[in-house]
């Protein structure tokens, strides 16, 4: 069985320092105003009963990625290890993949005039390194590796913990797993946002 890359993010260890966001931008030359990896952070409740929740977000490198199936020029493709990549040259910038991604993980790179997103730092993986967000995480909240290897850290974390994925109902089968994710940050509270019942 070949490799199947996945990431596990243990939110109990995430301190919200945003070092992953900065490292990603620096490593991948991500233009200003857009992000391949970012950290959502919400505060919920009313004083004195408040809590704060974080959610590092990136491309979920789904097993059944909608972005891949909607791309009209096959610019989005998937490697055997599951990594979803974009052929920046072939991409015509129709933005259909951006509209289709349920994880809001894609954006237009104005310098390349194409869709862009996290690649799991594919260039680093090829050099035998970890993605830079994993490498940088001060709380050691991120683990990355081969899901098909039962001895890998990601496989062991998934086996030993209660994990969640984002929006499982979309059947994209995302490969970024979360430990300790709180629903207050994994989904927007649309009714509160619209001024309706909370």
């Amino acid at each position: 069985m070949g490799k199947r890359y996945a990431m596990v993010i243990d939110l109990r260890k995430c301190v919200g320092c945003h070092a992953c966001t900065v490292a990603c931008k620096s490593e991948n030359n991500v233009p200003l105003g857009v992000y391949r990896s970012r950290v959502e952070e919400v505060e919920s409740g009313d004083y004195p009963h408040v809590s704060r929740h974080r959610l590092p977000r990136l491309c979920n490198h789904c097993e059944k990625p909608t972005c891949l199936s909607v791309c009209p020029v096959k610019a989005t493709y998937q490697l055997e290890d599951g990594t979803v990549l974009v052929d920046y040259e072939r991409c015509i910038g129709c933005k259909y993949c951006i509209a289709a991604c349920p994880y809001d993980a894609r954006f237009i790179n104005e310098e390349r005039h194409s869709a862009d997103k996290c690649t799991f730092c594919h260039h680093r993986l090829e050099a035998g390194l970890q993605p830079d967000c994993v490498n940088t995480c001060v709380g050691n909240a991120r683990a990355f590796g081969d899901l098909n290897d039962p001895q890998s850290e990601v496989a062991r974390l998934i086996a030993a913990n209660q994990i969640t994925v984002l929006k499982p109902e979309t059947n994209n089968r995302p490969q970024v797993y979360y430990i300790g994710a709180d629903e207050r940050v994994t989904r927007p509270n649309l009714m509160q946002l619209l001024g309706g019942a909370k």
Binding site: V39, E40, E41, V42, E43, S44, G45, D104, R184, N189
Partner: peptide, 14 residues
């Protein structure tokens, strides 16, 4: 219960 988001995505529509 109120929820407040820091560092909002603030994305632009494509």
């Amino acid at each position: 219960m109120s929820i407040y988001s820091f560092f909002p995505s603030g994305g632009e529509m494509y």
